[in-house]
Design a protein around this nucleic acid. Structure first.
Lengths: 122, 122
DNA sequence: CTCTTATATTCCTGTCAAGGAATACGTGAA
DNA sequence: TTCACGTATTCCTTGACAGGAATATAAGAG
């Protein structure tokens, strides 16, 4: 899940692609509507849409001579789920820091990687 | 909101940075612990931590000779909020293509009526 | 002060990605 | 068929970014 999440984040990390996604949040759009709404050039929009499509964020449906792009829910669900795994941590972080330090400050040199995670549970 | 979101997504879009973030989810860590846990080289980890810090995803607290890195909640809250603005759209997915397929797999719900399809004509 | 440990920074290099421009492709209309 | 429109692809150039290697900085131990 992490590898796919990285690809999704990378696709959304480009500002113009993020603008496209946020525009499509208001409803499906043909390419030309995106071009005009965002003031980008048509080839760049097509290229961005391709990247978004390869990440599963959008799909296209051909209608007439146009291709109507729309958002797909799965990647957003994945992001939401991923983010939720962090949201549960913020209330349980007061005093574990001191314990952590003592356990991690080990003898150097011959240390070959043995470490014990301090107390990741709350 | 969007501009900062793009920066956050970009920071998380790098696979090794995402691994670092997911490691820190289990608790704060000094740099060397990240190096050993992920099998990366120390300079690269420091560089990634710098990027993560510039996006506000992590902060460091100096203790002894080490710097303990931890996640910061704000960017995750921002991502969650951003994602929620999309999660409310999926139930309104009745459109021309959907209607064709709907006769096959549509499950009859309690919706006698028909929700307003967002057809943003322009 | 000197040495060591932990981390950060710099330089270099290769790769990849985004924008611009031009063009190719596909499909409906005449 | 030919034309026009909507969209996709290709080529090119430039800039950003990640990894490797070496080194610099900070601070505690002796």
């Amino acid at each position: 899940m992490s590898a796919a999440a990285a690809a999704t984040f990378a696709a959304l990390g480009e500002p113009n692609r993020l603008r496209i996604v946020e525009l499509l949040r208001d409803g499906p759009r043909p390419v030309n509507a995106i071009v005009q709404a965002l003031g980008l050039r048509q080839p760049q929009v097509s290229k961005h849409l391709r990247v978004l499509g390869e990440s599963g964020l959008v799909t296209a449906e051909p209608v007439h001579r146009q291709r109507i792009y729309r958002l797909e829910p799965e990647p957003f669900d994945a992001i939401a789920e991923w983010t939720e795994s962090f949201e549960r941590l913020w209330d349980a972080r007061l005093d574990s820091l001191g314990d952590l330090l003592a356990s991690l400050d080990r003898e150097p040199g011959t240390d070959d990687g043995h470490r014990d995670p301090p107390s990741p549970r709350r």
